[in-house]
């Protein structure tokens, strides 16, 4: 018995001493306590909880089509994570639920009509090339779900493009037409604001209801899993640009509200752009990121061939994140003005 153990033994209370081993004492650097409520897994579970209103709306509106996309994407994401992590010979990271989050987000951003292999391929590309090759959770530069979606968007332009949202057989009338954004862009048809807000329109399965995204997003902000700066700055930027266009075109506010509530804007602002891994660290950086994303969304919506731009806007700003981080190194307390 070492001197230390003898000392610890003698330090034990007499009634504990007979028959008991000395307590097992360990040492480690400070701090010796941590916030037990915080954890990577807890954050991911939060995201899934935050997405639940959007999931419910999608299941209600698109029924089997939404269920199919969700199951395909989640299953494929988990399988891809398992496969790629195994290939790298790393310990499994399925437990942290991050692959599940990618799967749910991907599933919700699919058109209901897309065949199963589109979602599966998007998942494999998103997890494999978007995340694991960079080193797994926390190391990726681009949002994995958006990498996967961008890949299939280009590879299967027909199945993923505006056409995919029309003529989904067996759906309720309201959702069998063109998506509100493509209707506006290509045919000049304006969808009413109230259906857009509540979500009874056509679109990717999870993004149609603005109110569901806002509710879930507010939960994430309340839990501090998502920052408030990113969604706020995206929405304000989009509102500003759409507002100017609105005034210039004399749409009497309809154009503005349409751009705010249609398409993937709410879903993207609250759930995609706020991905902590691929967005800046500081509050100032997050505002820059949000303003940049908002501007790009409107540029793509107004001037490009695509009706919707959230995905590409987020991907482009993801690439800017390291640069934004190095622009916004905060000044430590007490540092003199340079």
């Amino acid at each position: 018995m070492s001197d230390t153990n003898r000392l610890i033994d003698s330090a034990m209370s007499p009634e504990d001493r007979p028959g008991r081993k000395p307590p097992f004492i360990n040492v480690a650097p400070s701090p010796h306590i941590s916030d037990s409520r915080a954890g990577t897994r807890r954050m991911m579970v939060d995201v899934i909880l935050g997405l639940s209103p959007a999931i419910v709306v999608s299941l209600y509106l698109f029924r089997f089509y939404a269920l199919k996309q969700l199951i395909v994407c989640v299953a494929a994401c988990l399988a891809a994570e398992y496969l790629f992590v195994r290939m790298r010979g790393k310990s499994f990271t399925l437990k942290d639920c991050s692959a599940m989050v990618t799967g749910v987000i991907l599933g919700l951003s699919m058109p209901g009509s897309a065949p199963w292999f589109v979602g599966a391929l998007a998942s494999v590309v998103g997890i494999g090339i978007g995340k694991i090759v960079f080193g797994g959770v926390g190391m990726n530069i681009f949002n994995p779900a958006m990498v996967g979606r961008a890949f299939v968007m280009i590879a299967f332009a027909q199945l993923m493009g505006a056409g995919a949202y029309e003529n989904v057989t067996g759906l309720v009338d309201a959702v069998s037409g063109a998506t509100p954004l493509s209707a506006l862009k290509f045919n000049g048809v304006q969808t009413g604001i109230s259906p857009l807000f509540m979500g009874v329109t056509n679109g990717s399965v999870g993004e149609v209801s603005a109110i569901a995204c806002i509710l879930g997003g507010l939960y994430l902000i309340y839990r501090k899993t998502a920052s408030w700066q990113i969604p706020a700055s995206i929405l304000i930027t989009v509102a500003l640009i759409a507002g100017i266009t609105d005034v210039a075109g004399g749409y009497q506010g309809l154009f503005l509200l349409h751009h705010l509530f249609a398409g993937a804007l709410m879903f993207g602002a609250f759930f995609i752009a706020t991905d902590p891994v691929t967005s800046p660290l500081t509050a100032k950086g997050k505002v820059i990121f949000g303003v940049g994303t908002g501007c790009l969304i409107m540029v793509i919506r107004l001037f490009s061939g695509y009706p919707e731009g959230v995905m590409f806007a987020v991907l482009i700003m993801n690439a800017m994140t390291p640069l934004i981080n190095s622009w916004t190194i905060p000044k430590p307390m007490g540092q003199k003005e340079a």
Binding site: A11, R20, P23, V27
Partner: peptide, 20 residues
């Protein structure tokens, strides 16, 4: 009164900045 049997770490100071 001595350590309890489940004592695991002895720290000089508090748990945030103390030395184990």
């Amino acid at each position: 009164g001595g350590l309890t049997p489940n004592a695991a770490r002895i720290i000089s100071g508090g748990p945030m900045m103390g030395f184990a």
